[in-house]
């Protein structure tokens, strides 16, 4: 099943008089269960592409279909609705809400989805367990290491059982050990739950887990090949 289908997508950024063609005629289909890396030199359009797939941004032209639903022309709130429950995000920076505990951070998307208290409790503990953070449930982000924060962020991305998780350089701020640990967790979740993962990364440690590697250059896909990651 197709989780995301991009057809002839172009994204042009305009800053003053300067136009940057960040993506230029992208055609890409992400199938359910993939564990895909977007690679390419800095400025090649990886982040832009992830943001379009994640409905955080809208293409200048072309069509983005998520989960069978056309997203171009949706307003801000409709896109927020589409994201919640369908798409989870893991960012390069450790994007936890600083005033909330690990537990509460993971709980937030469940709250936004109107899940019952009992269900939230069960799900949050299950996820924190899965990323090995159950014993730090009541810690605030500033009481956690970068790797620990990123694991909580992964748990949060997974909270609502989204079909698709988008991660932009999830290991960039982590040392080797923590990076591997986070990747192992994601790989395991991919294998066990069939959740689709798409990463933007330079990191060979990430690429080696991927079962598909899409290479971008100057906003164009120049290579789309199977990866070495075992499924």
């Amino acid at each position: 099943m197709e989780v995301a289908k991009l057809t002839d997508v172009t994204r042009i950024y305009k800053v003053g008089q300067v136009e940057t063609r960040a993506l230029n005629g992208i055609n890409l289909t992400i199938e359910s269960g993939e564990f895909t890396s977007l690679v390419g030199p800095s400025g090649s359009g990886k982040t832009t592409l992830l943001q379009l797939i994640g409905c955080l941004d809208q293409p200048t032209s072309g069509s983005v279909v998520i989960n069978g639903k056309e997203t171009t022309g949706l307003n801000r709130n409709q896109r927020a609705d589409l994201r919640k429950g369908t798409i989870g995000f893991v960012f390069q920076f450790f994007a936890l809400i600083p005033t909330l505990t690990a537990y509460e951070n993971v709980e937030m998307p469940l709250l936004l989805n109107g899940k019952s208290a009992a269900e939230r409790r069960r799900r949050v503990m299950e996820l924190l367990e899965a990323v090995g953070m159950a014993d730090r449930a009541n810690n605030r982000p500033d009481q956690l290491s970068g790797g620990q924060q990123q694991r909580v962020a992964v748990a949060r991305a997974l909270a609502t059982n989204p079909k698709l998780i988008l991660a932009d350089e999830p290991t960039a701020n982590l040392d080797t050990e923590n990076g591997e640990q986070v990747m192992e967790i994601m790989k395991k979740l991919n294998r066990e739950t069939g959740t689709t993962f798409v990463f933007a990364t330079h990191d060979p440690r990430v690429i080696k887990y991927a079962n598909r590697v899409v290479t971008l250059q100057d906003g164009v896909i120049v290579k789309d090949a199977p990866g070495n990651g075992k499924s």
Binding site: D81, K84, M108
Partner: peptide
């Protein structure tokens, strides 16, 4: 972040 995880306006 809140918006990305689905918080509405």
């Amino acid at each position: 972040i809140l918006s990305a995880i689905g918080m509405k306006g």
